[in-house]
Design a binder for these strands. Structure first.
Lengths: 167, 167
DNA sequence: AACTTATGAATGAAAG
DNA sequence: CTTTCATTCATAAGTT
């Protein structure tokens, strides 16, 4: 597949975006959802009302409701809340960094210590042998305890070999 | 605004591409695993072949194999499958939920990715293309260009009703 | 038109 | 497995 932008995508024109009665009558770009002022208004109101992470069902309802004001998909609503919440938190985080000063070390300390807590496991050599009877939840879980390596310049790779015979 | 991070003094990103149409100049980014185009390609192929929840040893093997194309850890493989599977399911759910709303629009090609037969045990020697193909197509970033628009301007919307009672 | 900002979309990592 | 959080990428919209 090479091209894919020529199926049914053709936008006419997008109405004004946020900014209150914009009206610009301009932006004619598709490729990503461009919420209308009304949609943003409703979404914002929902957020203000305390809704932060709508359930799938709620997302569906919101989407349906908003589709009345313009094209929209469930995922747009999903992403909107996800982003809105994340950015609000992000901003907060920014502000809370006024502790500056000469650093109370507390933060750094915690961060430094957490790495070597209980990673002494060194599950480097995973059990490659087939477990006897119950080979139940032996997988997954253990892998998570791997410590992080250091950044290694690994941009030198060999030619792509797509054979998956190693399995 | 914003700057580079300075947590533990690791490598700061270098932006750039991950083997898109350019060349091998991959961004040396740390902090979190950034799969190379080759790695994604292999992982995707494995997934397409039916692999959904690799066992510990499979993860280990895959990781080892992929490390040939760049830095990678077992947990990255583990998470990749975990996320890929979950999102495939999530996406399907969302799309199917709001497609009844779109009605007169074309069906989504996302559905094209129907479930692959689980009986795929032919992960023996899957070769998609010659090892030295110059086909450096991005399989990672280009992926984002999937068509998803059909911007149907609903410029004729009703008066704004800000009641959120539909929840 | 180039640059900057705002924000939609994606995804790695992790929590529940 | 499902859901959430954190970061990052991409791009429409706004600014200079």
């Amino acid at each position: 597949m090479d091209e894919g932008m020529s199926m049914s995508g053709f936008c006419v024109k997008a109405a004004s975006v946020r900014g209150a009665g914009g009206n610009g009558s301009t932006g004619t770009k598709c490729g990503r959802w461009t919420p209308t002022a009304e949609q943003v208004k409703v979404l914002t109101e929902l957020f203000r009302s305390g809704l932060r992470t709508p359930s799938t069902d709620q997302i569906q309802r919101i989407s349906t409701q908003l589709s009345f004001y313009g094209k929209i998909e469930s995922k747009n609503v999903f992403y909107w809340f996800q982003n809105h919440k994340a950015r609000e938190r992000q901003k907060r985080r920014r502000v809370s960094s006024d502790d500056d000063k000469i650093s109370s070390s507390a933060k750094h300390f915690a961060e430094m210590n957490r790495v070597v807590s209980e990673h002494e496991r060194v599950i480097e050599t995973l059990q490659l042998f087939p477990l006897n009877s119950f080979d139940r939840e032996s997988s997954d879980q253990k892998l998570r305890l791997r410590a992080n390596d250091q950044c290694k310049e690994t941009e030198q790779h060999p030619p792509l070999d797509l054979r998956l015979s190693f399995l």
